[in-house]
Design a protein around this nucleic acid. Sequence first.
RNA 1: GGGGGCGUGGUGAAGUCAGGAGUUCACGCCGGCCUGUCAAGCCGGAGGUCGCGGGUUCAAAUCCCGUCGUCCCCGCCA
Length: 619
Amino acid sequence: MGRWPGCGQGPGHRPAGSHSQRGGSGMDPTDVAGEPQYRTLLAVDVSEAKAGQRVRLAGWVARRRDQGGVYFFDLRDSSGLVQVVVDPAEVPAARDLRMEYCISVEGIIRPRPEGMANPDLITGRVELAADDLRVLSKSEPLPFVLDARVEPEERLRLEYRFLDLRRPRMRANLRARSRAAAAMRDTLNDRDFLEVETPTLIRSTPEGARDMLVPSRLRAGSFYALPQSPQLFKQLLMVGGVDRYYQIARCYRDEDFRSDRQLEFTQLDVEGAFWGREGVFDTFEAVVAAVVAELRGSSLVVPFPRMTYADALLRYGTDKPDVRFGMEIRDLGDLFEGTEFRAFSAVLDDGGVVRGFNAGARDLSRSGLDALVDRAKALGARGLVSGAVDPEGSWHSSAAKFLSADEVAGLTAALDGSPGDLLLLVADSARVTAEVLGQLRLDLGKPEGHDDLSFLWVIDFPVFDELEGGHLVPSHHPFTSPVDVKEMRERPREAISKAYDLVLNGSELGSGSVRIHDPEVQREVFEILGISAEEAERRFGWFVKALRYGTPPHAGFAMGIDRLLAILQHETSIRDVIPFPKTQTGTDPMTGSPTEVDPDQLAELGISLSEAAAATDDG
RNA sequence: GGGGGCGUGGUGAAGUCAGGAGUUCACGCCGGCCUGUCAAGCCGGAGGUCGCGGGUUCAAAUCCCGUCGUCCCCGCCA
């Protein structure tokens, strides 16, 4: 298979021989083994070098410009646009063309007359002088205009996705996705990874997200689940001696939608034996660099920087820091130890923290500051202390009068405050403070676009997160190796795991870990999680059994391809890099799914709907 | 489960806060003119139950309540 031509930034780099490319004249539209020949060339390959050649193109009528005695239209195909010019006296069919008619057109490539070139078009120096035109397929008037100027309501775009995909932006996204996948495969194949498929109808292991269920006909009353990820299967491939595995895997999680979450999404899933974190990082850095080189034409600096989870939370208030900009959060607890300011001293005495960051020089009005305070309160803070550094180095803040001169000086120094800088402080529990300041930092500093790419490994996640009430849940997943088993056993709340995340511009791209390969350690993790031996056996017995048969040490990672593509393509939603996505309520306006099914289908599966389900289903 | 934005000829918007005749703009559609246009231009025309239901009012796109759809966010997403 030749690579699809015209995929790049200009004409002339198309590999030879990917399509028949006849020159000369006297072309018969039905000259290839009795089949109609629709085209001999792609639009973007119409160039000055081919001037004088007789060619045939096929595509859609993008724009018409009827001059009366001469008729122009832009022909669009998968490669791009080229202007076609016809004399309606010679080719009367041109008059009947309408937008998005699918046509095949033949003529001579010729340079445009002096001064008539269009610099906005790759093919703008030439045009096709057509003498034969066949309408392959007419089009009804469109439900919306295929024009970058207007963005139709997304529901409508999805209902007519087949038209939406004709827009250059969407075509570019599809192409980027294909090229990204190819770059991933090339990189991993070069490193002797094996692409292996895992099943999409698997056993339900309720844990984490809700499973999508599929009823079994042969065992009515039983259900398969769609995989939330190939996690356990890829670990079993390691036990099976595969050594280096990857898969571009579809994953399913039945949770509520966001602009970066869909019911089904795609991950680059990787696992390897006899390696650890460094091998995983090295591999993913190579993969991501290859994708960025392919889509952005730029090279990334590797290795990516690393930051511990604890550091990320302290300095950026989140486990997925956007490090494209500064405004780092600093702990000010030492500074305010023994302060007279009761709002701070009370929190510190209570085991809380005082932290803040420098939001830079910004001229906020009274109402602007009030809005910040409201925002902080909406995020869960009890309050927000704010103020600007004034030219004398003191602090213009309603809290200033409660602070000593030393405290103000120390505060300004700690936050590198220059005159005019806005300093924001929150005093609360470590958790609330991090959340509030982290979000305010993003509100005030997050860059608009994605021109800069700041990749970051976040490492040293805790083994467990503590829920309200003290119950422990896995921070990553229950198959993640702790750094130290003894520490995990004795101080599970502080224990560090061998889990890591990859973050890009403040988005979590994926996560992975060194896995547990010792069944005894696995048993202990289940125990600490409060999963009894019986329950572990019932839910994960099929997996844990495998660990007892010479499991190699192994580690892996999974990266969300949709999120990576959205950022690289400057899209704000992953829906724009997914060919056929669903709406926020999980419906597909094009096909109308999900739908009711025939009662016979349900009967065959041994399923009857509850009255409530039947009532809410309006068909 | 919760909070918020949006819904106006085929499309995108303005009009809604402050009620007074379906008003306006751009694109598209239909017809006409034009031999170098290119997000063509000019002339003419068609096209709307202002998402749906209820209420307030002499009068509702506009105010109120409900509901549906969609988008953003919180929860949720091992």
